[in-house]
Computed example of a mutant assay.
Amino acid sequence: MTFEGFLRLALQTVTAPRDVARLLLSLRLPTEALVLGFALVVVGNALVFSISLVLMPPTQAMGLLGNPLALMAIRGVVLLATIASLTWIGQMFGGRARFESIALLLIWLQALSVAVQVLFTFILPIAPQLGSALVFAATAIGAYITVHFLDEAHGLNSIGKSVVVLILGMIAMAVSLSIFLSLVGFTPAGLTGHV
């Protein structure tokens, strides 16, 4: 995909998310491509975050989040848990999407997120208020796209149901992640360091 093609598809993701979801799902990418895409967005996410730490003054307590390898592991686990939760909760509501379908759509959203984070990395130090407003807008747009992606992938034909799937999926992801982290010995203090 060319840079121009990426920008065109990114814009279409905002203006016509269902069409993009249908297009992506029609590709029927092999598992190897999904694993590679997953790895790329996790590494890209951690890399951009690490660069932002260099450009902006670090917070008092970064802890593990200041370690790029730990950050990649955390991002990977969170994305995996999100994919599993949205697949499972969607199926509970009568959805038909498989894990691979949700994975593909969320990997694409993460790729867009990395691109947006690059932009924010340079805007926030120069214009913090503008940057904060853009972060809020990007979060709202991301939620809008995700709801439409879920509705299309699961075939729910209901934005309301898709919103509920997203909310319950995020709750399920947070609960399962906190249980996992406590089982492996991580605590909030371990993640953020000592204040």
Rank of each mutant, 00 (worst) to 15 (best):
F3K: 13
F6T: 10
L11Y: 15
T15Q: 08
A16E: 12
R18A: 15
A21S: 13
R22G: 07
L25M: 05
L27T: 04
T31Q: 11
E32L: 12
V35E: 04
G37L: 10
F38A: 07
L40S: 04
V43N: 09
G44T: 03
L47G: 08
F49S: 14
V54F: 13
M56L: 11
A61Q: 11
G63M: 11
G63L: 08
L65A: 10
G66P: 02
P68N: 01
L69R: 01
L69I: 07
A70K: 02
I74A: 12
R75H: 14
V77A: 14
L79M: 15
L80V: 03
T82A: 13
A84N: 02
A84P: 01
L86T: 05
L86Q: 08
T87Y: 07
M92V: 11
A97S: 04
E100F: 00
E100A: 09
S101I: 02
L104K: 05
L105R: 01
Q110F: 09
S113W: 13
V116S: 08
L119R: 09
L119M: 11
P125S: 11
I126D: 06
I126S: 05
I126M: 14
P128M: 03
Q129P: 14
L130R: 05
S132T: 10
V135W: 10
F136H: 13
T139Q: 05
I141V: 13
G142K: 02
Y144I: 08
Y144K: 04
L150H: 07
L150D: 07
E152Q: 11
A153M: 13
L156N: 02
N157L: 03
N157K: 06
G160I: 05
K161Q: 01
S162Y: 00
V165R: 00
L166V: 04
A172L: 04
A174Q: 01
S176E: 11
S178A: 10
F180I: 05
S182E: 12
S182W: 03
S182F: 02
S182N: 07
P188I: 12
A189Y: 07
G190D: 02
